[in-house]
Amino acid sequence: MIECNLAIDIGASSGRVMAGWIESEQIQLIEVHRFANEMIQKGNRVCWDVSYLFAEIKKGIQLCREKGLRPTSIGVDTWAVDFVLLDEHDRLVTDAVTYRDPRTDGMMEKVFRYCRERSIIYERTGI
């Protein structure tokens, strides 16, 4: 089996599991698994389907074995501003409400009432 590093990228419309390793002093990259990512309506909120995404990530890891790959590390990149809360047993306490949910409509205008320098907000948050 080839030892590799996995990069998992969860974007706003799709996700993918990429494997990379060095062979003959060159970086080798392959897409192991790609899957759709769609926001779902849960009550009056627009959310990410965390259970589905986790299942697809696990599927991608399993596909590595079928391709003769053995991950030695895994890195995950997601949306940067969305989150879930977990309890002391690592169970979801909240849904993963998306940054595109209307609950945040008009918030930046409210923020700019208190901080008129947009560059300061970017400097402090990166977004």
Rank of each mutant, 00 (worst) to 15 (best):
M1P: 13
L6K: 02
D9R: 02
D9S: 04
D9I: 04
G11M: 06
S13L: 09
S14E: 13
S14M: 10
S14W: 04
R16K: 14
V17M: 05
M18L: 15
A19C: 07
A19Y: 05
W21Y: 09
W21H: 05
E23M: 04
E25L: 05
E25Y: 03
Q26N: 12
L29P: 00
I30R: 04
V32K: 00
R34T: 04
G43Y: 07
V46G: 00
C47S: 02
C47G: 06
C47N: 03
W48S: 08
D49Q: 05
V50R: 02
S51A: 15
Y52P: 00
Y52M: 11
F54R: 15
A55K: 11
A55S: 15
A55H: 09
K58L: 13
K59C: 13
K59R: 15
K67D: 00
K67A: 08
K67F: 09
K67G: 01
K67V: 00
G68V: 01
G68R: 03
R70Q: 09
P71W: 04
S73K: 06
W79N: 10
A80Y: 14
V81T: 14
D82T: 10
L86W: 02
D87W: 01
D87T: 03
E88H: 09
H89D: 14
H89I: 03
H89W: 07
R91T: 08
T94Y: 04
T94S: 12
D95A: 13
V97C: 01
V97D: 02
T98A: 08
T98P: 07
R100V: 04
G106A: 04
M107T: 13
M107K: 14
M108L: 15
E109D: 15
E109W: 04
E109K: 14
K110V: 10
V111F: 08
F112L: 15
R113A: 10
R113D: 09
R113Y: 01
Y114L: 13
Y114A: 08
C115E: 15
R116Q: 11
E117R: 12
R118T: 09
I120V: 13
I121A: 05
Y122F: 12
Y122N: 14
R124A: 12
R124H: 11
T125G: 06
G126M: 01
I127N: 12
